[in-house]
């Protein structure tokens, strides 16, 4: 299997604070890879570093065989797209769905925009009626669908997903997770996905990395996690905490 994303010894430093302390991981083509771990451990920073949005001080990022420098060119964004946690913050509320989808097409000078918009909206289960609605007129789940459609419109091979459903209720979450699985299968996408919900990670991913304090704690397959075959105490704590609240 060829590697889709390879991260080696990645360091990110804000002022003097080391948010990532030499993190390495490899995601195969077509694989769905999960990141879990402590809040503030650097999961979002890792995704942002891949997209060129965090101050990398050491280490390398290789995407589809190409080792990246400091900046990302347009071609990069046709390969890699990101979906953020917050469907309220990531879409401009006063823009129509159509305008939100047109924007990346215009930036990349893509001609068959019309077809792509129709396909993307159709794929995320938003009918034609939604195309000229404003973002602020959509529910949280509908907005997240638009964000996914926007990420898909450039036909990337890799999606970086940062807590794509944590702002959604359980029923809408199920719909969005099903949608993500379906587009991944249909478009043969590679996923790198952050979630603090272990059940979501085992549902969506084949392998995962557990992070704490800017470092990798351990790397597991989903079935190792499901079977509690883990070696680190921190991972064990996460599993225990996933069972819910226990009153002392």
């Amino acid at each position: 299997m060829t590697a889709s994303i390879t991260v080696e010894g990645l360091e990110v430093v804000f002022d003097r604070f080391r948010a990532l302390k030499g993190v390495s991981l490899e995601v195969s083509e077509g694989e769905s890879y999960g990141l879990v771990g402590e809040s503030g451990s650097g999961k979002s920073t890792l995704l942002r570093a891949i997209t060129g949005l965090a101050p990398v001080s050491a280490g390398t990022v290789t995407v589809n065989g190409k080792t990246l420098g400091k900046t990302r060119d347009k071609a990069f964004y046709r390969e890699v797209q990101m979906v953020f946690q917050d469907p309220y913050g990531s879409l401009h509320p006063r823009q129509t769905v159509d305008r939100l989808l047109q924007e990346p097409l215009a930036i990349h000078g893509i001609a068959d925009g019309e077809k792509r918009i129709e396909r993307a909206l159709d794929e995320v289960g938003l009918g034609k009626g939604f195309r000229f609605r404003y973002a602020h007129q959509l529910s949280g789940g509908q907005r997240q669908r638009v964000a996914i459609a926007r990420a898909l419109i450039l036909e990337p091979s890799i999606l970086l997903l940062d807590e794509p459903t944590s702002a959604l209720d359980a029923s809408v979450q199920a719909e969005v997770l099903n949608l993500l699985e379906e587009v991944r299968r249909r478009r043969k996408l590679t996923f790198l996905m952050v979630s603090h919900d272990l059940a979501i990670i085992t549902h969506m991913c084949e392998r995962l990395m557990v992070m704490q304090n800017g470092e990798a704690v351990e790397t597991l397959t989903a079935s190792q996690l499901i079977g509690h075959r883990v070696s680190e105490d921190y991972t064990r704590n996460l599993l225990r905490a996933s069972e819910g609240f226990v009153r002392a």
Partner: peptide, 20 residues
């Protein structure tokens, strides 16, 4: 009941998840 049923659970594989 529908809300309870559509959550993914560790160790119970269901693809796709049931929706409401």
């Amino acid at each position: 009941r529908g809300l309870l049923n559509c959550m993914p659970r560790i160790g119970f594989e269901r693809h796709p998840l049931p929706v409401l």
